[in-house]
Design a protein around this nucleic acid. Structure first.
Lengths: 363, 363
DNA sequence: TTGTATGCGTTATCAT
DNA sequence: ATGATAACGCATACAA
């Protein structure tokens, strides 16, 4: 069953039949109804591939995920983002095709990725070079959770800086915790970097010092970070990641890494009154470590997380955190991508999504 | 840059240029290298859409998710399954396009879904009618986490029955708990149904009775279930869901629902020694409920979960559970789908994936 | 409003 | 092994 068959059966030309589907307004109502009825009876639906090649529009967008290992879309962040993208894409009559890679190479040179899709959403850690590959093919790109210097490109990012400040305001102003330590995985991640700056600025605004201990390695772990994205820093008039206080830098954001990594901090003679963690999973590990020493959360040490993933509300005590609108990030990414598809020469634009402080028991 | 341009630049015909890409063996090595080199220099890549329409192979498979609401791919089960599908698809040179729906209607009548894709993977709860829609278009279908009577269709399912029996063996034989209660959300879900049967069979094999209390509604909640899939039951010589003991049926599988739903059970004068939950999230809620009554897990009442999602290991106490190979389910689904794409007339086949008992602290 | 003719970028058939 | 040419199924500029 092709358009030709339908046209014959309806007694019209192929062109009219085509219009009945893709441009209904252009065809007489009676004729159109006849065509559509014939199509319905014959269970016909236009071949999307042929439409794509003829109209040079595939109706496809690509969601490209860079991650060293699983989980990919099973990730607590990317899964919900994908949901948002998919929902919004559906509303816009687009379909989402997936691509994942475990290596930082340009191995997206696959079918559909470089020529089929009308636009691409790249996740965190997408190498800048990759953006260029897409741009060279005039494929609009929106980047989630990061901000690069590339032109004509969209960026969707959580308001990490504002979220961190909101949390600090809660810790200091509402709870009265004056000494707040900072624990994170690599500060080279844009998100962590911005949360760290928010943490520092909130302290500065209150004339407080970041928690610091001479028993902790001071610049080592931060200093090891040599390669990172300077674009977001520029918004704060910075060209380097600040090095202040004694931030604890973990090898990854697993609860295990946090449990182990926080031990030196808990060994210090002067403990902080609160610990700001850049992830809920880190908070979980740290709470376990605190409990293991017979201390209480939040009575002895308060702990807060970030992201508001499922475990935050299930943990005991339930974790105070910043709720990141992951679904909204996905939806907005798709919306922005659409605007670049319709108007490829728009200047670069960064959309910063608001988040929400969720106060629970751990602070 | 089209194939034509490359052909001209390389001084060969369009046909030869085409073969250089899609059937390299058919063309002289020197010629081929010349074409490929020209293509490389010009940054050319064949247009996948045109290939698709000409070859009638899109290289696309669809992953269709039925769920009443979010999360869709952000779900703890479907996210990892999608990862498996995507990884395997990548290895087979296929791309995955997504579709979600929040209504149980045939609204997959969208572009690419009904004509573009070479095969479809349908998630749990796919109405049987839907399978017919795909089959009418000769699109092979594999169903994840369920088993229908449709022909020429693949089914991938966790060994729910075996997993439940394994867990019961641990509870009864290793731990000596003779009285085990059963808590689940709707038994009409194939997975829960099979876990319930495994629970009952394990007891029968040991001449034990399922936990029962006259203070609990006996058949109501189970009896309310009138519509469910009888195909999996047939493997056990059953035509109905058994009605034995006093299973507690929750409105959903959230920890909140479990916390509230388990109260009548905890109010009973004779408590069970252990509680078999068909989901980790249920176990979380039940553990909270038990703690709230000043009882200890597992000393007073042991609790086990199922699925082995992230919270299982983070909960306190860490939850004994059955680890379901979600990634493997995805990979296997894609593999099986591929076999149906290559050979559409294969008879229906069900692949039951092994799971693993993970003993932690809650039992 | 409708039809004609051509094009979209490939693959496939059949020669040579 | 290569080339000419016809599909593939649809969109669209132009003419009527």
């Amino acid at each position: 069953m092709t358009l030709n068959d339908i046209a014959h059966l309806a007694g019209v030309s192929k062109a009219t039949a085509s219009r009945a589907f893709s441009n209904p307004a252009m065809v007489n109502e009676a004729t159109r109804d006849r065509v559509l009825e014939v199509a319905r009876r014959n269970n016909f639906r236009p071949n999307a591939m042929a439409q794509a090649v003829a109209s040079r529009k595939s109706g496809l967008i690509g969601f490209c995920l860079y991650n060293k290992s699983r989980p990919f879309f099973g990730h607590t962040f990317f899964g919900p983002v994908l949901d948002g993208v998919t929902e919004q894409a559906k509303a816009m009559n687009y379909h989402v095709v997936l691509a994942i890679t475990d290596q930082m190479q340009d191995n997206f040179e696959e079918r559909f990725i470089e020529d089929g899709i009308e636009g691409a959403i790249l996740s965190t850690f997408a190498p800048e070079k990759m953006v260029e590959v897409f741009r060279a093919r005039k494929i609009p790109v929106v980047i989630v959770n990061d901000e690069l210097p590339a032109k004509h490109t969209g960026y969707i990012i959580d308001d990490n800086y504002g979220g961190a400040k909101k949390m600090m305001a809660h810790l200091i102003d509402e709870r009265g915790y004056q000494s707040v330590a900072f624990v994170s995985n690599r500060l080279s991640h844009t998100s962590n970097m911005l949360r760290y700056i928010g943490y520092l600025d909130a302290l500065d605004e209150r004339k407080l010092q970041p928690y610091r201990s001479s028993q902790l390695p001071q610049y080592d772990l931060v200093g090891r970070v040599t390669e990172y994205n300077r674009t977001p820093l520029a918004h704060f008039g910075l060209s380097e990641i600040p090095r202040r206080g004694s931030p604890v830098i973990l090898r990854d954001l697993s609860p295990q890494a946090a449990f182990e990594g926080v031990q030196p901090l808990l060994d210090c003679s002067v403990l902080p009154r609160a610990i700001f963690c850049t992830a809920d999973s880190i908070a979980v590990g740290i709470i376990k470590a605190i409990h293991a020493r017979g201390l209480c959360v939040p009575e002895d040490i308060a702990v807060c997380g970030y992201d508001d993933i499922e475990i935050a509300v299930l943990a005991e005590p339930a974790i105070t955190t910043i709720s990141v609108n992951r679904n909204g990030i996905g939806r907005t990414a798709m919306e922005l991508l659409r605007s670049y598809i319709d108007n490829p020469n728009c200047p670069s634009k960064t959309i910063c999504l608001k988040n929400q402080l969720v106060i629970r028991e751990s602070t």
